[in-house]
Computed example of a mutant assay.
Amino acid sequence: MLIRLFWAFFKVGALAIGGSYTFYPLLEREIVKNYGWLSMEEFINVAGFSQAAPGPISIKYAVYVGYEVAGIIGILAASLGVMLPAVILMMLVVKGFSRYQNHPGFEGFLRGVRLATLGLILFFAWEMSTALTPELKGIFLAAAAFFGLLAFNLPPGFVLIFGGVLGLTIF
């Protein structure tokens, strides 16, 4: 079981390029679909409360799933798995970045990665929206959070806390 935890989170750590929200589709595939460690509803619940806690999303999932599957040693296996690819990659990037940053194809590569990242985020938003039970109160809360972020540039932490407090009162 520890090897499976390590390997699942190693794959996530190795493939999630472009920011924290790119982790969600990869995490969901490993945690929900491939291994069945969490249901989709549990996965979304972890996504919700992990947004309210500081730190990288992937580490919070590694801690939660690692503990649920194998206790403290599971936390270590999953956390090491998700962190190791970044450590290895950053050691290589530090060496190669200065050499290739002026290469004509480098900017095109980075632009492609950014656009693919947008696609991953939109895919996760779609997956989340289809997994949640649509009801008017929930749609209103999601729309209010989106509008607050977009129109008023509210801090994401404030929006999450407000959403949780509002959720206590309307659900």
Rank of each mutant, 00 (worst) to 15 (best):
I72A: 13
G18T: 09
L120P: 11
G108M: 11
W37G: 05
E42C: 10
A77F: 08
G55T: 11
N45H: 06
F97W: 10
F147S: 15
F158I: 13
F23L: 13
L154S: 06
K11M: 12
S20K: 01
F152H: 13
E68G: 03
F49Q: 09
L118M: 13
G148I: 09
G105R: 10
R111V: 15
S58K: 01
L154T: 11
G167I: 08
L120S: 15
Q51T: 06
L118I: 15
Y100S: 11
P54C: 00
E135Q: 06
Y21R: 03
A125C: 15
K11P: 00
A142F: 12
F9R: 00
L76Q: 00
S129F: 12
A77L: 00
V46N: 01
Y61G: 03
L38Y: 08
L120K: 10
V113A: 13
I121K: 01
L149C: 09
L27H: 02
K11T: 07
G105V: 02
A142T: 08
K95E: 11
V94F: 05
Y21I: 12
G138L: 04
V87D: 06
M91L: 11
I31M: 07
I75E: 01
L149D: 06
I17E: 02
E28C: 08
F106I: 13
L160H: 13
A70E: 04
T22E: 04
P156K: 10
I161V: 15
L5C: 04
E68M: 12
G96R: 04
R4H: 09
G48H: 00
F49E: 07
V32M: 07
A131Q: 08
L80A: 12
P134M: 10
V69K: 07
H103F: 05
G55P: 10
L166Q: 06
F9Y: 06
V69S: 04
G74I: 02
E42V: 09
K137T: 15
K95G: 09
I44K: 00
L26Y: 05
M40F: 00
M40N: 02
F158C: 07
F171R: 04
G13T: 03
A143V: 15
I31W: 01
M40H: 07
F43T: 04
I17N: 01
I139T: 13
I139E: 00
V113W: 02
S129W: 01
Y24E: 11
G163P: 04
I161T: 10
G66A: 05
L84Y: 04
V165E: 05
L154E: 03
